[in-house]
Lab assay of single mutants.
Amino acid sequence: GFTKEQQRLGIPKDPRQWTETHVRDWVMWAVNEFSLKGVDFQKFCMNGAALCALGKDCFLELAPDFVGDILWEHLEILQKE
């Protein structure tokens, strides 16, 4: 899971503390893990605080249908851990 990747890359547990690099690493991991298609990494050029502050509607505009939902749900789980 993502926990191993977080440990390997030194990504903080709390997504709100992520840098732009951490956000990119997470999106890249999720794309590979969940076989997601059509993700534009440029749209995720922000730090974790900005990403978490978007709200669901704005977040879902960053990625194609269903893909955004998967990313959003995973981000929500990470914020609760």
Rank of each mutant, 00 (worst) to 15 (best):
Q17W: 08
Q7M: 15
W72K: 00
E5D: 07
H22C: 02
K4F: 15
C52H: 04
G10E: 11
V27A: 07
A50V: 10
R24I: 09
R24G: 09
E20K: 12
Q42H: 11
F41Y: 15
G55L: 02
D40H: 07
G1C: 07
E20Y: 07
N32S: 13
T3D: 15
S35D: 14
C58Y: 14
I77F: 13
G38I: 04
R24F: 06
R8N: 08
K43A: 09
I11L: 13
G48E: 02
P64W: 00
D25V: 11
E73F: 06
F59Q: 01
D14I: 02
M28E: 14
L62H: 04
V31T: 14
L75S: 02
I11G: 03
L9A: 08
L62Y: 08
L9W: 07
F41T: 14
V39K: 04
K37G: 11
T3Q: 12
M46Q: 05
W26I: 00
V23H: 01
W18H: 00
L36W: 06
C45Y: 12
A53P: 00
T3Y: 07
T3M: 13
C58S: 15
T21H: 11
Q42W: 03
N47W: 00
I70D: 04
E20F: 05
A30V: 13
K43E: 06
L62C: 06
G55F: 00
L75Y: 03
W18P: 01
I77K: 15
V27D: 01
F2E: 05
E20A: 12
A30S: 11
A49Q: 13
Q17C: 12
K43D: 07
H22D: 11
L78T: 06
P12M: 02
W72Q: 02
F66C: 12
V27S: 01
F2Y: 08
D25S: 13
P64Y: 02
R8L: 10
M28R: 14
V67M: 15
G10W: 05
V31Q: 09
A30C: 13
W26L: 00
S35I: 03
L36R: 00
W18M: 00
L36Y: 03
W72A: 04
V67A: 11
D69N: 14
E20W: 04
C45I: 08
H74W: 03
G48M: 00
G68C: 08
L36P: 02
E20H: 09
T21D: 15
P64I: 01
A49S: 13
F34P: 01
A50F: 05
W29A: 04
K56Q: 07
A53Y: 03
K37D: 13
E20V: 13
L62W: 04
E61Y: 01
K43H: 07
A50I: 07
E76S: 13
T3S: 14
D14V: 03
